[in-house]
Simulated assay, not measured.
Amino acid sequence: MGRLSGYVRTGVTHPEEAPLLREAVTLLFDGKTEAEATRWLASRGMLTPRGNTFRREVLHRLLANPRLAGLDESGKPIEGWDERVLEPDVFHRLQKLFEERSEKRGKSRDAHHYLVTGGCALCDECAHSMVGSRAHAEAPPSYKCDDCGKTRINADRLEDFVVEHVLAELLKPGARQRLEKLECDIEAEVARLKEHIEGAAERDASIGDLYGRGLIVKAAFLAAQKASKEDVRVSKLRLKQLEQMTDLPIGDVHDLVAWWRTASHAAKKGLVLLEVEHVRVGRAQGSQDPEKRVLIDWRQPTS
């Protein structure tokens, strides 16, 4: 994991970045928007650890990270975290402010259920996931790269393109047999992940035993605990995604087009994720045509 803005290393604040972030938070408490706070940081020459100029979304994710206040995901103080960019009470006040502003923004937009989020849609520029987003409160839903931010595409345009090609694939000879094999692959991976997640407690106990017997130092013990927690988190996210792809009403593949018209969003998303490994989206470069910007990687059975 890379360095967190505001810190030189874990628990040690950056002498230049930390004061700037505290001042940016003060601006938010004084009624400034996140965009204004972002521009203020840029005017002070502050960059991300990767050397990029801060964007509003990047600043928001940073300020919503509990580690900025030396807290873990459950809100408890992290052992050995000696210095903090924000004090816990300030961090909690900030999260409440974010919630209040989010509620106000939410009233001006209709919800959109994105079809290829969760790691399916990728930016072809930097290979990172694309997320659901809107350019502003009144803008139509779109997808944008969650890392470089350079790639964006209208959600309806992308999803209509993907659905059209998925349904076309389902009409090809042998589609039903291929889907059944894919479901078997997914079910096998679901079983492996469940077993892996269930074994986390035993693995953590083994790590604790090694530390208790003095066979590993404290730093190694804490690092192993952290790695185990992250592994379980990623495994649970993957499991949740895979479980959307099982128990689909495949039946006669020719009926799926009619089924699609009345299926729930969850079922549609499950079928798309079963068929599609990734949807790679290129930058517009003067054309909004998905045929010129989008490439679908189809999921292939392992046997």
Rank of each mutant, 00 (worst) to 15 (best):
A37T: 03
H196G: 09
I216L: 11
L62D: 03
F54M: 01
E138P: 01
E189D: 11
K229P: 06
I250V: 13
V232G: 05
E275N: 08
G2S: 13
R67G: 07
L193Q: 06
G251K: 05
R213A: 15
G149M: 05
V217R: 11
A18E: 03
L122Y: 10
R105H: 13
E169W: 13
A258T: 13
E23Y: 03
L4P: 00
Q95G: 06
P77A: 01
H265Q: 13
R293T: 07
L94W: 11
S228D: 11
R109E: 15
V217M: 13
K194I: 07
V253C: 13
R233E: 14
V279F: 06
L237V: 11
D204Y: 12
G286V: 09
L94M: 06
L71H: 01
V116D: 09
Q225T: 05
S74M: 08
R280I: 09
E202A: 15
A69S: 03
G2N: 08
G132M: 06
W259S: 07
P77M: 03
L170C: 08
L171A: 15
A139D: 08
A188C: 03
K107N: 07
R105P: 12
K292R: 09
F54D: 01
D231Y: 10
E17S: 01
G75S: 03
S235G: 03
L256Y: 08
K150V: 14
L21H: 01
E291P: 00
